[in-house]
Nucleic acid binder design. Sequence first.
DNA 1: TTGTACGCGTTATCAC
DNA 2: GTGATAACGCGTACAA
Lengths: 345, 345
Amino acid sequence: MKQKKNVTFNDIAKYTGFSKTTISRYFNNPDSLTLENQEIISKALVDLDYKENKVAKILANGQTEFIGVIVPNLHNHYYSEMLNQILQTYEQFGYKFLVFVGNEHADTERKYIEELMSYKIEGLIILSFTIPSRELADLHLPIVTIEREDKYVCSVNTDNYMGGVQATSLLASHNCDILIHINTPTSPEIPAYGRIAGFEDVCREKNLRHKVIYRDLGSTYDSMKKSLSEILDELEKDYPTEKKGLFISSDTHANVFLNLLIQRYGTLPRDYYLVGFDDSPISTEAVIPISTVGQHIDQIAFEAVSLLVEQMNERKKRRPAPLEKTVHKVITPYLIRRETTEKDS
Amino acid sequence: MKQKKNVTFNDIAKYTGFSKTTISRYFNNPDSLTLENQEIISKALVDLDYKENKVAKILANGQTEFIGVIVPNLHNHYYSEMLNQILQTYEQFGYKFLVFVGNEHADTERKYIEELMSYKIEGLIILSFTIPSRELADLHLPIVTIEREDKYVCSVNTDNYMGGVQATSLLASHNCDILIHINTPTSPEIPAYGRIAGFEDVCREKNLRHKVIYRDLGSTYDSMKKSLSEILDELEKDYPTEKKGLFISSDTHANVFLNLLIQRYGTLPRDYYLVGFDDSPISTEAVIPISTVGQHIDQIAFEAVSLLVEQMNERKKRRPAPLEKTVHKVITPYLIRRETTEKDS
DNA sequence: TTGTACGCGTTATCAC
DNA sequence: GTGATAACGCGTACAA
């Protein structure tokens, strides 16, 4: 089967005259060998061109150093960038990632989780949202979710409420006559709901005229364009003269809305103020750079892996764990003022 | 160490009265058991809640079903979408992917490859371009590269030459007075060079006035904007009245150029025709949808994994392999006509 | 059709 | 400081 048989501890042992045990110790506890013997083994490794075999190591000590990851997709910039940052943590923690794309299909994701379990992953990071956290908790495996329903498991989320507050306050500071938030219908169970709550709270607190427009914009560019075009018509009709401050649920949507305005008026009319969400590339690359609220994706990824590593380490102790309550970390977002709010200022 | 000891073949064997071997056969060659006994074992699996352990399986038969993947980054839509499609092939081939982000640092990538080897990956897909294919070939492992220098290894690439021809022909069909191709300095060794060759060949063949502008546009939006703004100035100066057909190396760059024009003129001037490359989201989301050449990322990913699987299967045969020459598959791109060329038609 | 015995390459537990 | 020996959980000749 195998091309060339790999060099093993046995080969090194024979070559050097030591036992397998000593070779093992050279790697795991070198100080217990004399410097002399370390040298001998070190040389043998080179002579024989030894390559380590982590599979054997895993079977022997049970530590795979694997973390499973399930993302809904990688089209969405948020997910691909999050995966990017998660993978980067290899440098700090040394864990390897087995990645699956769930495509928002619960049973597929369950199958993936089973496969991951068979590879003895030590922990799991979940970005997909089809499987309830209740069910995830039953896996009895260290788990961290990111930006999804997280009642029964540990999680790291953006402070969406604060994001909503920041965006709304920015619009308010420009003295808009009417503040409008456009979003898809959102369950209060998921973190993104905070954006809506933040918007409403600021408006109420400051006693501002406002409105939330809930509408499913679809996932294709055309459906988004169609829905937003309708919304634009409504706004033009309902608030023809008012200075309108729009907080739109994502930069992608904000960009479509902006393009509609440009196509209609050749420029961004003075009575429109726009803020998006995510600080995704499109917010920079749009004809007119879009003000937005950014999530610290790098921090979130790092905190998620940290939180997971903590749990995994706890598991390895002899007295397994005090298993405290589920931890929910929250990362504060940042506001970026760009031209859709700071016009020719 | 371990929470609860896992149920093993031994446990099932004791429970059912069979031997471990029979249990193993139940999974790998069930037909060799009587239906009756299959039932008994099947029931035992449920009773004991058996979960398979692939790590042990690997150590025993050497087949990890792991494929290593190294991408330069995941910011770039092309890479994240390619990874997306690669991961999807799990459904057809069952291979799991260990993914690393190389960040274009050769030594880091070498370290990652070593780590991957220690996990006994069966094959490797390389999208990063820092390590020469000569060196990759020396790993003596099934390898497929995608869209990079591939002299000594198998690869799957887009037919960049054809892409260049398509883009250029489109511009030519609009009777542009001058055709211009903007690109970064590109080595003839990498597939993307074909775009330049295709452009030049079409222009020469049709005897068209043309020019290739080589310029490093940097990687930030601002540097791109700055460089392209300079190029725009040059074009305005050199070809003030000519109908200009621009083939730009990527949609991202084409979008920046488009935005510059819009900012300058409020609309896309009638004497500018633009074609980008990649069919990335920005080409659709731009103020004016950009004509572009699309790569069949799904096909490329599928062919890459297929090609790899072929090599891996060959390795498992008793007479290892006729090891033919390296295979280079080529996928034809598609042209999308959008508003930057098909104006009000 | 089923079982025995050994191997896969490492770590862990004792001894010495 | 070092070495036997037994796990780890499964696959596979070979035998019956």
